[in-house]
Each structure stands twice: as structure tokens, then as C-alpha cells.
């Protein structure tokens, strides 16, 4: 494969005290693909994702975006670079409205004096944008965009979080267990949403424990084990039981890099 990865990690190391969460781990995400990251609990998936999304600074190793070395010190840096992450916890403020949450940390201000000097938020513009994005993703029929997030169901909250990432993520979208808390119907919607985002050319990193979901949407599957990338497998050529066997150590892949 001659394409250059859009997001690349090399030799990433992260230690928490005596625990090595990332042990010289590599990571590659190619343009336009859905890369699933699977691994057993404690394999270091979350740390890997936090490292590439700026939430955690790796102790060693380099991360490249579009071939350029980057050094994120906070999720804000990663966001500014076009990497949006939907965390498992969703990172939303329950008491604030949908619109407030979608624009948290990147609020729009009114033009002219009111915005520049009085720092007034442009609420109508933010509400219109939030409504448009939610509708565009076909996620919901909104009656009140000023509704507090805590009044939404789990699926609705997930929808708002994915819509936020899809609305602002220009380069990469990272989804951490997006369907873990959802029902069958809502999971289906989120999977459709993921495919929809890919069809717009934005690559996605999908962290999930749900093998049927992973095998349905992923183009490649990154199997994480003991803090590093064990192998990358093609979901069309491997079965779910193979994947589970690799990630739990029950089986050793013959060719570590067959599809890297």
C-alpha cells in the first residue's frame, strides 16, 4: 500500500507509574477509511486514542498528521488540527442546552460591536447551525434546541455528540464505543451515521467491543494487545472469532502485517 496515512503514530509509549499502557505502539489511519480498534480490557486502546486525540501526551514516540509531526498538549490542539473525538462519556454538560454543548469551547460571537467588545454570543446563528447539523444527519426531529442535554435519552445524547464531531471534524473523527450504551435501533442509526460520515471522505477511528458492528462497517481492524498493535486484519478475510482469538491471545496471527 503506497498511500500515506493521514494520521500516523510511531513507537508511542505511555506509562502510568509502573503500568505501561502503551508499549512502542504504532498506529495508521488512511484517508477515507473506517479503522476499527479492538482489544481486550486494559490492552491500552483508550490510552492510544487519548494520545492521538491530544487528551494524553505520550512519553515517547511521534504522531504525524498529514505527514507533519504534531505535538498536541490538549484536546483543543487536536480539535484545531481537525481531529474530533466522541468520548465514551460524551463530554457534554448535562445542564446546558444542545446548542451550548455543540459549541462548547468554540462559541460564535455576534459580529460588530456586540461581539467584539461586549463578547456577546450569537445564539440565533449557533441554534440554526446546531439544528441544521442534527437534521442533516437525520438524527432527530428537534422541537427545542435549547433543551438541556440531561433531558435527552442516551441515544439522543450520543446523536448530539456524534453530530458535534461530524459538524466540526475536518480531518479525522474518533468514536470511542459509540454504540455501547445504545439500543438496537439507535445503534443502527449511529452505524448509518458513521458510514455517512465516511462517504463524505472523512476517515473514522472506531473503538468498539461490538464485533458485529466492527465487522460490518470497518475497512481494516487494528487489533490491540498488551499495549501495542498486534496485527491489522481485513474484516472480509477474517472471522470475528479469529479477531477475538487474536485480541485475547488465544491465537497468534501468522502474518503480523498482512494488511498494514
Amino acid at each position: 500500500m503506497t498511500r500515506e496515512p493521514i494520521l500516523k503514530g510511531r513507537n508511542l509509549v505511555k506509562r502510568y507509574g509502573k503500568v505501561t499502557a502503551l508499549d512502542h505502539c504504532d498506529f495508521d489511519l488512511y484517508p477515507g477509511e473506517i479503522l476499527a480498534v479492538i482489544g481486550d480490557n486494559g490492552a491500552g486502546k483508550s490510552t492510544l486514542i487519548k494520545a492521538v486525540s491530544g487528551a494524553v501526551a505520550p512519553d515517547e514516540g511521534d504522531i504525524f498528521l498529514d505527514g507533519k509531526k504534531i505535538n498536541f498538549t490538549s484536546p483543543i490542539d487536536a480539535r484545531a488540527a481537525g481531529i474530533e473525538t466522541v468520548y465514551q462519556t460524551l463530554a457534554m454538560s448535562p445542564a446546558l442546552s444542545i446548542a451550548d454543548n455543540m459549541f462548547m469551547g468554540r462559541e460564535l460571537r455576534k459580529p460588530g460591536f456586540m461581539g467584539k467588545v461586549m463578547r456577546q454570543l450569537d445564539r440565533p446563528a449557533m441554534e440554526k447551525f446546531a439544528r441544521a447539523k442534527l437534521n442533516e444527519l437525520g438524527l432527530m426531529t428537534i422541537q427545542n434546541i435549547n433543551q438541556a442535554v440531561e433531558t435527552l435519552s442516551g441515544g439522543q445524547r450520543q446523536g448530539v455528540a456524534v453530530a458535534r464531531a461530524a459538524a466540526f471534524g475536518s480531518k479525522v473523527i474518533i468514536l470511542d464505543e459509540p454504540t455501547a450504551a445504545l439500543g438496537v435501533k439507535e445503534s443502527r442509526r449511529v452505524l448509518e451515521l458513521i458510514l455517512d460520515v465516511r462517504s463524505r471522505g472523512i476517515p473514522i477511528v472506531l473503538i468498539s467491543h461490538n464485533m458485529p458492528h466492527v465487522f460490518e462497517v470497518a475497512d481494516r481492524v487494528h487489533v490491540h494487545r498488551l499495549g501495542k498493535r498486534l496485527c491489522i486484519i481485513d474484516p472480509k478475510r477474517h472471522s470475528m472469532s479469529d479477531a477475538v482469538a487474536y485480541m485475547t491471545g488465544a491465537k497468534v496471527p501468522e502474518d503480523m502485517n498482512e494488511f498494514a
Binding site: A55, P75, I76, R79, T85, Y87, T89, L90, A91, M92, S93, P94, A95, L96, D100, N101, M104, G105, R106, E107, R109, M118, R119, Q120, L121, R123
Partner: peptide, 29 residues
């Protein structure tokens, strides 16, 4: 009342009180 309701800083004050980790991940300093 204006600052807390109508400015980004005011919204950040609420977000920090609501769920500081969520606020940090969403990009609030």
C-alpha cells in the same frame, strides 16, 4: 447576568461546575 448568560466565558463557568471533565474534553480551559 449578561456575562454568565450571553458570553462564552459565562457558559464555560456553568460547564466547569456541571462536569469539569466533560468541559475539559470539550475544549474548556
Amino acid at each position: 447576568a449578561y456575562v454568565l448568560r450571553q458570553t462564552a466565558w459565562g457558559r464555560h463557568v456553568y460547564a466547569v461546575g456541571d462536569d469539569p471533565e466533560a468541559a475539559a474534553l470539550a475544549g474548556v480551559k
